[in-house]
Design a protein around this nucleic acid. Sequence first.
DNA 1: CGCGTTGTGTACTGATCGGTTCAAAACTTG
DNA 2: CAAGTTTTGAACCGATCAGTACACAACGCG
Lengths: 198, 198
Amino acid sequence: MARPRLFDEERALDAAMRAFWEKGYEATSTQDLCVATGLGRSSIYNTFSSKHDLFQRALSRYVDTMTASQLEILEDAGRPALERIAALFERIMDQEFTQRPEGRSIGCLSVNTTVESAARDPEIDRVLARDLRVRLDALRATVEAGQRAGDIVADRDPETLARFVNAVIGGMRVSAQGGADRTALEGIAVTALGALKR
Amino acid sequence: MARPRLFDEERALDAAMRAFWEKGYEATSTQDLCVATGLGRSSIYNTFSSKHDLFQRALSRYVDTMTASQLEILEDAGRPALERIAALFERIMDQEFTQRPEGRSIGCLSVNTTVESAARDPEIDRVLARDLRVRLDALRATVEAGQRAGDIVADRDPETLARFVNAVIGGMRVSAQGGADRTALEGIAVTALGALKR
DNA sequence: CGCGTTGTGTACTGATCGGTTCAAAACTTG
DNA sequence: CAAGTTTTGAACCGATCAGTACACAACGCG
């Protein structure tokens, strides 16, 4: 045993996550990460072995917390399934517009990373693919419940509708990054809900 | 007059566009651009004044050709509006899966750039915003025609439905980059069409 | 207090970044 | 062919990149 760290590893991870989220992986330099976390280079490289490793851990943390908060909404068995999906859309919009009141939305780190590096980085892709599966499973289960209960259309299979909802969420996020305001996103959400309703 | 260029400027622009498309702006080095275009650094900097300028011109070229090909489909007055939007989805999917048969989709340069740099680069944002307006206008006009003809739902305003279709396209592109196959995208498209159908 | 261990700051590494300089090559025009 | 203009390749620029070396500071434990 010897000298203890003078920083909280999870706080540092959060700060790094934020930096990657705002600028993307490539555009975030190790210097940026030092400033964002408040750590020196040594501490960063001592704790996380490389920029890539730090990114992977930050991304994993992001998808875990983000997906957990979404599952919480989707698995709330007390409400009708369609209402849960509506609440999910609402949550997405809150994220897009509260986290960064001044200026434009920074979107979703998961979507951003899918676009920036999923195709060229197998390790990152694995993190994203696993998370995508979890989210699709939860969406599918919700859709199935809605179909049984009769508030979601039953003429299309649950996996398809899950993928549809997921794609709409992605589209809303890209739209927000492209400058769409909240009412624009609200319109997209209610239209998508219209495709599920019955 | 003096020594003429030994390369075709548009071909070079296409090659650069391709490079940016595959790797993104930040991850594409000037060296990459030399290899992709087959030009030396001097020729590139003599023709295009900077990496940023080259990117802007490549992106402009991309959105112009891409949007033109989409307008062609949307403005084909001989077909019902809903069918035109279905054909547009079909075109998107063709792009996603033919341009890169082996390996994963590289998505859409417009979406990729919106995600990577629209928020931090005003000049790039202007190019994207102008193109977005053009595409939304064409979608809105198509939706209005469909509403008049009675094949598209009339209980939501055209701008909203245009934004919805645009978001779905973005979502399909992100899904493709995340590994979705053609049948998955087809399911998303038909579900979206279901939301428009009267 | 002092030994052993670990974290931290500073300085440094070679490589690569975007971009420039410049002389020679290549072409048009007279 | 010669004068004048432009393109081209190669060498070069300072800055920054991700990552490392190392001395020293700070702590736990005996």
